[in-house]
Design a protein around this nucleic acid. Structure first.
Length: 103
DNA sequence: CGATTGACCAGTG
DNA sequence: GCACTGGCCAATC
């Protein structure tokens, strides 16, 4: 079951070009709900699709920092710096680096 | 249908 | 600069 909002979110994320990285909040804003960043994460988690590059979506913390430090990462650090990922944060980081999204 | 949870964000100590 | 708190929204229990 997909509400309009979730559908929009998925669409927006899927439309993110290579090498481009957006924060959950920006995605939410594009979907029409600037304050629904949390909902975006929830939706992706329950509605993850292989065509949806969730690795191109990161929390504002990482976006603002720009200089993502790929440190070891305790669960806490992951949530605060890079956010989660279905296939593991290592995969996410690797993909982002490969695309040049992360310095 | 009411309550809880969770891939978040911004503000404060 | 890091840790804790309150607030928003949709999905799940």
């Amino acid at each position: 079951m997909v509400s309009s909002f979730s559908k929009k979110v998925l669409k927006v994320v899927r439309a993110i070009p290579k090498g481009r990285i957006l924060s959950y909040q920006m995605v939410a804003r594009k979907a029409g709900k600037p304050n629904a960043a949390r909902a975006v994460g929830s939706i992706m988690k329950r509605n993850y699709d292989p065509a949806i590059p969730c690795h191109r979506v990161v929390p504002s913390s990482a976006f603002v920092l720009g200089t993502n430090k790929l440190v070891s990462a305790d669960s806490k650090v992951i949530a605060r710096k890079l956010g989660h990922y279905n296939r593991g944060h290592e995969r996410k980081v690797a993909l982002l680096i490969a695309e040049g999204a992360i310095k």
